[in-house]
């Protein structure tokens, strides 16, 4: 499902216009992005939690040349589905 399909689906289900649905989805995405940018967590009951995970620095290897390289520590966004959602897809 592309974003356009998703906008149409939400519009039909919530009985709002497509324009409004698009605004709402954009706003939803922006809120998640803002929260993650701040390093905070966003928990949505029955769905899951968006958060930021830290990855430690580690030594890697260039697979082509075999040269060891240092991979710096970084932060990555993550989503973990709630237990009820996990049960739903089982």
């Amino acid at each position: 499902m592309t974003k356009a399909d998703f906008i149409a689906k939400v519009a039909a289900k919530a009985k709002i216009s497509k324009a409004m649905s698009e605004k709402a989805i954009n706003c939803f995405v922006d809120v998640v992005k803002d929260v993650l940018k701040k390093g905070d967590r966003l928990s949505l009951v029955g769905f899951g939690t968006f958060g930021v995970a830290r990855r430690k620095a580690r030594n890697g290897r260039n697979p082509q040349t075999g040269k060891p390289i240092k991979i710096p520590a970084k932060k990555v966004p993550k989503f973990s589905a709630s237990p009820s959602f996990r049960k739903l897809v089982k």
């Binding site: 499902m1 974003k3 995405v29």
Partner: peptide, 27 residues
């Protein structure tokens, strides 16, 4: 509230059916 719930439920629905929801620039 209805809108936020619908967004979440629509994603859940799609995934439960094995469909994918793609939002460019987000994930």
């Amino acid at each position: 509230k209805t809108t936020v719930d619908t967004i979440i439920d629509s994603i859940k629905d799609a995934i439960t059916k094995g469909e994918r929801v793609e939002i460019r620039g987000f994930g």
